[in-house]
Amino acid sequence: MIYLVSRSISQGRRAGLISLAGTGVGFVVYMLMANLGLAIVFVAVPWLFMGFKALGVLYLAYLAWQALRPGGRGVFDVREYPSDSSARLFRMGLVTNLLNPKVAIMYLTLIPQFIDPDHGHQTVQGLTLGTIQICVSIVVNALIVIGAGGIAMFLRQRPRWANWQRRATGILLAAVALMLAREVPDRAQI
């Protein structure tokens, strides 16, 4: 979501929505992998999952530092970036989502709880539930992308609010990074 918000703020809603299309394709890839049994790698090789998780913790800690350091910048600070092509925005959204192993874990652990072998083919049920999840996720993220530009403009016109938002966001990002770093999942949790 932070990636999508940053694209929407820096390059406009169109860029955010194109990036969202890329993340949506990433969801489809993970859903297909999970339903075809390929995403089991993250469960079978827990150190791989932990490596991705460690990278995520470091990234959140970096974002928190960026927001909390003296002269730091908040997530909703409007910045000028060179415009990326539609293909690059799409590709970056796809790669960002594919580097999130928790998506694969979600498809492997959450969706199977709602599959009933007595109600038809399990793969079809998994694909159906995954498709519903993807649709809901895309709608929610699209609303976030559309709203991010408005929030950025609101904060740009109110520097005191922007400062408060930057600090609150930095503290929340640091808290999430610490919580994720403290989690030491055993094989049952993965």
Rank of each mutant, 00 (worst) to 15 (best):
L4G: 11
I40D: 06
K102D: 06
I138Y: 01
L55N: 08
D116Q: 06
A44R: 11
A181G: 15
A21R: 05
G56H: 04
G126F: 06
E183I: 15
Y62V: 09
I171M: 15
Q133V: 15
V103H: 00
L38W: 13
M153K: 11
G120V: 12
S83I: 03
G170V: 08
I115D: 02
L98I: 13
D77Q: 05
F49D: 02
M31C: 04
L99V: 07
A175M: 15
G147C: 06
G22F: 05
R91D: 06
R182D: 14
L58Y: 05
A168K: 10
P117F: 01
T169Q: 09
R187H: 10
V103Y: 00
G170K: 02
L98G: 09
P185T: 11
M92N: 15
M153F: 10
G150L: 12
A61E: 12
M92K: 13
I190M: 14
L32F: 11
V124P: 02
V5D: 01
A104R: 04
M153P: 00
R187G: 12
L58M: 13
A174C: 14
H121K: 05
I132M: 11
V5P: 01
L36D: 13
Y30E: 00
L60Y: 03
V176Q: 14
M33R: 00
G71N: 04
L36I: 00
Y62M: 13
I111C: 03
I9E: 04
A54H: 12
G120K: 05
V78Y: 02
A174P: 10
S85R: 10
